[in-house]
Write a protein that binds this DNA or RNA. Structure first.
Length: 625
RNA sequence: GGUCCCGUAGCUCAGUUGGAUAGAGCAUCUGCCUUCUAAGCAGACGGUCACAGGUUCGAGUCCUGUCGGGAUCACCA
């Protein structure tokens, strides 16, 4: 891969900024940092490519913004021959670059398929995402997580980082024991093979079965004398029986429930390494992993390494010892170990229980170190829902106190919950949207749309299905990834299968239209060689080239912010601009050979950028649709 | 109660370090396919940027407060 030049867009703006700084020096005798001068792309209702805001200059000269704009524009033009002309509207100086500038950047770099991607910068970053529990299949929340993690990792790669993708799988604990117990008691030896069920769903069904049986058991118990006695003894004020037992559920599970006791007993046996229990655990987790792999493959995500909590949950004690030795942590009289995070605006946090066992954060300390030892990364990104904000804040502070070498490069990519139009997803109420079902649904919708149009008739059934898969997944993925991560989002299944408007398929369609033009161009032996003869660019053509020139900067910003939605928004804007151009102008029937050649290069560049941008979002492009 | 996040059109969302008349899509209505793919284009309709102050030549954006929604504040994970 030949890496592209550094961001041209930044170069043009930076060039104008430094020239403006020079002009300010000359005209007003002031020294200003180029970065402090506001230069932005000119809004489309005005004439020009870039705009300088001259309002701030009134500090130095007693003139109207218009007068300053005029004299400043003239000075800029004198200093920078690339500026063809300028105009002043209110306090805004609009500069137009020469056609030659735009023709040059288009020809020099934008027709390269790798345009926008930066050369390796030698830094390695790890991205952790997905990280499911093994008792249930993946759902819509995981889908958002996976899309964010995958996309962020692709964007970091494009920005020049070496990327390691990992997930940590919560394969232990009471949840999977519930599934194990329910299977043991109620399955009668059934397996995914014997029932034909997708294997992670099969295991999830036993988790649901456990919860169902437990609920029945609890309801029955509530009628007993023992339950009434507990209620009478412990109710608070005027609490009704119903309210009381709602809150009492966890204590019932731990103190009275037969199923609860059995599940807890199973967890104890697992922790003790009981061979039968471990064998059952391996069997059921094995089923889950097969199902997860199918789902991940369908989404199009893959990982370099899997970490398992069963292997990491005891890690971190050594680091706690180290922190004690260095005085970063302290031990209470009861033997528990704590860290004081008050200087970071937080509380004291326990790191080891008084019996010496680990807590959640202890494990993450050890895992962070393990990953550093495994890969030598300098940065780690954790894609985890925002309910864990406090945990990661604390984790990062603790790692800083331990002076871990990667501790300045930690980032929690927090994202908001996904709600449905009907409200929150609740597994207890069966409103969780399953990942496999969701993908099947959007693909079915794309299939229906495609059949209606009949544009794929000349493809084989397999090829048609491949196109339909790409379209459906594009709709789903774009719908989710276009929203800023930190925002809670409402996911309306009806809207997610929309194929028109601000959607993935809309962008795919722009690409497909270009591919069609390029196929025709090849048939007609049209190529881009005469492009340099093209004299005057149309306004829409200039706007397209300028927008293309923003692409490297967009990638850089998305990488710096860990925010794929920037790329999504940009891809949509570019596609929209292209669709309008396509409607208003013809490539292959342009007035001159020069125009034909120039436009061929232009749409080639647009197709490259759209394809790259969508690739960074984990979305594939079809050749036809 | 403390801390953090969110609040922009009927709905879903954009809105770079403060800059021009706050933008898209969906929905509703109206036009445009013998012409490179109409999953498209153009137009109409739709706003007290939650509210109130403040800073500024200029605030959706920054500061303070209020209201509404969410998360979190375990020797759970």
């Amino acid at each position: 891969m030949r890496p592209s030049q550094p961001a041209v867009f930044m170069n043009h703006i930076q060039l104008i900024q430094s020239t403006a700084a020079q002009a300010i020096e000359t005209l007003y005798g002031q020294t200003v940092a180029p970065d402090d001068i506001v230069v932005s792309p000119t809004r489309k209702e005005f004439e020009g490519d870039f705009t300088i805001v001259v309002f701030p200059f009134t500090k130095w000269v007693k003139k109207s913004p218009d007068a300053i704009g005029q004299e400043f524009g003239a000075q800029m033009q004198a200093l920078l021959p690339l500026i063809a002309e300028f105009n002043v509207v209110k306090g805004f100086l609009n500069l137009s670059l020469t056609d030659q500038v735009w023709k040059d950047v288009l020809a020099a770099e934008m027709t390269d398929p790798n345009y926008g991607r930066q050369a390796p910068n030698g830094e390695k970053v790890m991205v952790e995402f997905c990280s499911p529990n093994t008792n249930k299949p993946l759902h819509l929340g995981h889908v958002r997580n996976i899309l964010l993690g995958w996309s962020t990792s692709k964007i970091l790669e494009a920005a020049g980082y070496g990327v390691v993708r990992v997930q940590i799988i919560n394969d232990r604990g009471i949840a999977i024991c519930k599934s194990m117990l329910a299977w043991q008691k109620f399955a009668g030896g059934a397996t995914p093979e014997s029932t034909g069920a997708k294997s992670d769903h099969f295991v999830g069904d036993y988790y649901v079965e456990f919860e169902k049986r437990f609920r029945e058991e609890y309801l029955n118990w509530q009628e007993s004398e023992a339950a009434t006695a507990v209620y009478e003894a412990e109710k608070k004020g005027e609490q009704t029986k119903e309210q009381f037992f709602k809150d009492y559920k966890d204590r019932y599970f731990n103190e009275h429930s037969t199923l609860g006791r059995e599940a807890a007993e199973m967890l104890r046996r697992w922790e003790a390494g009981d061979p039968d229990t471990v064998a059952l655990w391996k069997k059921m987790n094995g089923w889950v992993y097969i199902g997860f792999e199918e789902t991940l493959a369908a989404i199009g995500a893959s990982f370099d390494k899997y970490y398992y909590e069963s292997e990491t949950y005891l890690l971190g004690k050594g680091m706690v010892e180290k922190g004690l030795a260095s005085g970063a942590f302290y031990r209470k009289e009861d033997g528990s170990v704590w860290v004081n995070l008050e200087d970071a605006g937080m509380d004291h946090k326990v790191l080891l229980r008084r019996d010496g066992t680990s807590v959640y954060i202890t494990q993450d300390l050890g895992t962070a170190r393990l990953r550093y030892d495994d890969f030598g990364i300098s940065r780690m990104v954790y894609v985890v829902a925002d309910e864990q904000n406090y945990h990661f804040q604390a984790l990062f502070e603790v790692l800083k106190k331990l002076q871990e070498p990667y501790s300045e490069g930690l980032y929690h990519l927090a994202y908001g919950m996904v709600d449905l139009p009907t409200g929150k997803m609740k597994s207890r109420e069966g409103t969780v949207v399953d990942a496999d079902d969701l993908m099947a649904e959007v693909i079915a919708e794309a299939r229906a749309g495609s059949q209606e149009r009949g544009t794929l008739a000349d493809l084989s059934p397999e090829e048609q299905e491949e196109v339909v898969r790409k379209i459906g997944l594009a709709a789903l993925k774009f719908h989710i990834i276009k929203v800023q991560p930190r925002k809670r989002m409402v996911f309306d299944p009806k809207e997610s299968v929309d194929l028109q408007g601000q959607t993935g398929p809309y962008i795919q369609n722009a690409y497909v239209r270009i591919r069609s033009v390029l196929r025709k161009a090849a048939e007609e032996n049209v190529n881009g060689q005469a492009a340099s003869q093209y004299a005057v660019l149309e306004k829409q053509e200039r706007e397209l080239v300028r927008t293309l020139s923003e692409f490297p900067g967009i990638i850089a910003r998305a990488a710096a912010d860990y925010d794929p939605s920037h790329v999504a928004g940009y891809a949509y804007d570019l596609a929209k601009m292209f669709h309008r151009f396509y409607h208003d102008y013809s490539v292959l029937r342009a007035d001159s050979e020069a125009a034909k050649a120039f436009r061929l290069n232009l749409v080639t560049a647009v197709s490259n950028v759209l394809k790259t941008a969508m690739d960074l979002l984990g979305i594939e492009m079809p050749e036809k649709m």
